[in-house]
Write a protein that binds this DNA or RNA. Structure first.
Lengths: 232, 232
DNA sequence: GGTTATACTGACATTGTTGTCAACACATGA
DNA sequence: TCATGTGTTGACAACAATGTCAGTATAACC
């Protein structure tokens, strides 16, 4: 077997002539960021099995114990990744909603766009598929309800101004659920569907507009007094 | 050493009084089916990391080399699982569409239901996320276009009967895309969304009906001659 | 009964991945 | 310039997972 020739008394120095001692030293924060970026990339492209310390380390250009130094364990890395993605998504959604407050764009379309961003949604999809959601208190579900609440407030305000009937609360929740589900699904399979349907970039955009219009029409219809549906 | 000794004559048998020689021998087909069932279950509940030969073998009650005997390799098992799921989904969708041909139920709702079945969709989602779609010629994308074609034929026929305008082809594709995306997303995140929104079983059903109605209204609206929208 | 085909098993080999550890190198401040 | 803290590394340990193999048990057919 001679399994271990051992004798690690430096008999096998690779290149004695070269010092090759250029070791880069980042700040802890910077290193963590780089590692998380690489992990996110791997996860998005290859799935959870793509999160391998060795590979990620290679991507960043460090050795894998460095990752363990910053994140304790592989699980720690995953948790940090979840946390970061959640806060990123949160910020993205809130600004999307904030911007659409002045009605320049449809809030639902903004939400859809923010959610169906490939990287984020695929990442979240993985977390959901592997059942890691319970680890984080503020998962995407909670986000969804927050958004639904905001939307509903918006609708109620509108209804008050127009003097129309206040919309059903559940209706708003269903709107938010559909948007979320569709955005998630779109992030996963949308690419393939568009391809199969022969849609180009512009076509995908048309699809999103179509979806936004669909919901808008529904809202206008529902919120308007019966029989009246002059939306625009 | 007598360790091997072919001594299944129970030197360390847990119950020496019992021969314990009951080795079950299934037909190859049966064995394959059981293994695939177990793998599918693991995959649905634990994600891709749940497909471990040892675990699956334990679930079935066999040793892990038996799996390799039937499927060559782990990858072979995965491919077989993909193939079976694809054909199952195909059949499910076709019968769903077939049944709804006589208008007892909305075709879109049937499709949604068939697609958002947790097991199937989660499995497919996994395949899509890991980019394993190219392996199979007949992925869900192709299925979607087939369904879209059928739906479109349906709509055109209706239009002809009613004497209304033929609907835009892209509109039908968008319908199918939305349904597919939403169903996929629902399979992944729907559970959590419903929970966060405080929906029970009946609530989830209401959501599906709501979605079906949304699309139906859209179809009625779009296909009707301009200005006329008395659907029901 | 005997023969054959094959589903199946236990033990082992192999490989890959996480995690540990002692030592090293780089920055900062005295 | 030395001391200190810590980012970083190579080598190794420990474990888990897939895959191999020779051999065993069972069903079917003669």
């Amino acid at each position: 077997m001679s399994r271990t020739a051992s004798s690690h008394t430096a008999a096998t120095s690779p290149d004695p002539a070269k010092p090759a001692q250029k070791r880069v030293r980042r700040t802890a924060e910077e290193a963590r960021r780089l590692i998380l970026d690489a992990a996110e990339k791997r996860l998005a492209t290859q799935g959870p099995e793509g999160i391998r310390l060795q590979d990620i380390a290679r991507d960043v250009g460090i050795s894998h114990p460095a990752i363990l130094h910053h994140f304790e364990s592989r699980e720690g890395l995953v948790k940090a990744l979840i946390a970061r993605t959640n806060t990123q998504l949160r910020e993205k959604l809130l600004t999307a909603l904030g911007n659409s407050g002045d009605a320049a764009q449809d809030p639902i379309e903004s939400v859809f766009e923010a959610l169906s961003d490939r990287g984020t949604a695929r990442l979240l999809a993985w977390l959901l598929l592997t059942g890691r959601v319970n680890d984080t208190s503020k998962g995407p579900q909670v986000l969804m309800t927050e958004i639904a609440d905001r939307l509903h407030a918006h609708r109620e305000e509108n209804a008050k101004q127009k003097g129309t009937l206040a919309p059903d609360r559940e209706d708003t929740f269903f709107l938010a659920m559909l948007t979320t589900s569709a955005a998630f699904g779109d992030a996963i399979i949308g690419r393939y569907l568009a391809e199969a349907a022969g849609l180009d970039e512009a076509g995908v955009k048309r699809f999103r507009n179509w979806f936004g219009k669909l919901l808008r029409q529904h809202v206008e219809r529902t919120d308007a007094p019966a029989g009246d549906d002059e939306g625009k």
